[in-house]
Design a protein around this nucleic acid. Structure first.
Lengths: 167, 167
DNA sequence: TTGACATAGTTAGCTGGCTAACTATAATGT
DNA sequence: ACATTATAGTTAGCCAGCTAACTATGTCAA
């Protein structure tokens, strides 16, 4: 998401601000650091998941299925919740099905639709991955007390409201 | 980076924490919100840039060139700073060269190497894009006073130090 | 001085997203 | 009741990253 490694120093930002007076140096700096840390977090998460033979896409599908009491859902619903297109979800399910972690179940009531079901093996995979993920995440966020976590959420809310300025 | 749209509610997290006692609910929640907002910011930035016929990759290359006093650099150096492989940089430069925004200059001193130079058209493009980007970013971050920006940077620093827990 | 290694750039082919187009089925309104 | 429209899933092909392998050039030590 943010590839850039060489974030601008204050000097560089000051130089740019001279040519482009609209530049708000602390705004740019906060923005880029936010993207940088979030990107590194996402990469680190992928590293963790890949140790279990998963990537974010397929992992989220398993989690979304586990959230359901029935341990089942449809590709469309999964696509909406996972934030990918239905076309992409077809591919994710293909992969998970081949690994035996989910199963396609064809029902009679709406013959356009398919039920995707978390298999025993899929649940077993989650029972290995999730504790590892939660332990690492707890460790990662350890340095933030509840007050700081609250502050972060509040700040993120403010930024989130501002995103529309880009569109 | 974080595709997932349907972030877990506190109820869902509580349910998961029952099965997986390592789960730290506010840690997970802060983590996911951070990724969610950052991803939306990145998408919004792409939207803004695409109005100018650019994507992040090519845009950063132009900016990296503009940072240099000579307005030139090499593909390798650009790749390092932009955080992409040299192979990817070849493609970015190909595109920018075709649009006339940069030029490849072959020098004599090291015949393995090429100098990439920001053209007049490239500088002119930045002179249109950057003010637009800075204006929107200022607007986006408007709701954060300097104190909150400082808090954010500090919190990001703490999280950043924790990322190693994932690796 | 020449053989081994290192560096710069490119190419080829993989991946996981995407959109657009397609098939099949269901729902709806006249 | 049937034509239109909407929905579910899939397929085909695009895009921007990636790795691995390759060419060309430069460096260095025996």
């Amino acid at each position: 998401m943010l590839q850039l490694r060489d974030l601008p120093t204050t000097e560089v930002l000051t130089k740019f601000a001279k040519r482009y007076p609209d530049a708000d140096i602390t705004a740019v700096s906060s923005f880029l650091h936010l993207l940088r840390v979030a990107t590194d977090l996402s990469i680190a998460l992928d590293t963790c998941l890949s140790k279990h033979g998963l990537l974010q896409g397929r992992w989220w599908v398993l989690i979304l299925l586990m959230r359901e009491d029935s341990k089942t859902s449809t590709p469309s619903a999964l696509a909406d919740k996972a934030g990918v297109t239905r076309a992409t979800m077809t591919g994710l399910i293909d992969g998970l099905e081949q690994s035996g972690l989910v199963a396609r179940i064809y029902t009679k009531d709406d013959r356009r639709s398919v039920l995707i079901s978390l298999t025993e093996a899929g649940q077993a995979k989650l029972d290995v991955v999730m504790p590892d993920y939660y332990r690492r995440l707890r460790q990662c966020m350890q340095a933030l007390d509840e007050e700081k976590r609250r502050q972060l959420q509040q700040i993120l809310g403010l930024i989130n409201s501002g995103i529309s300025a880009f569109i």
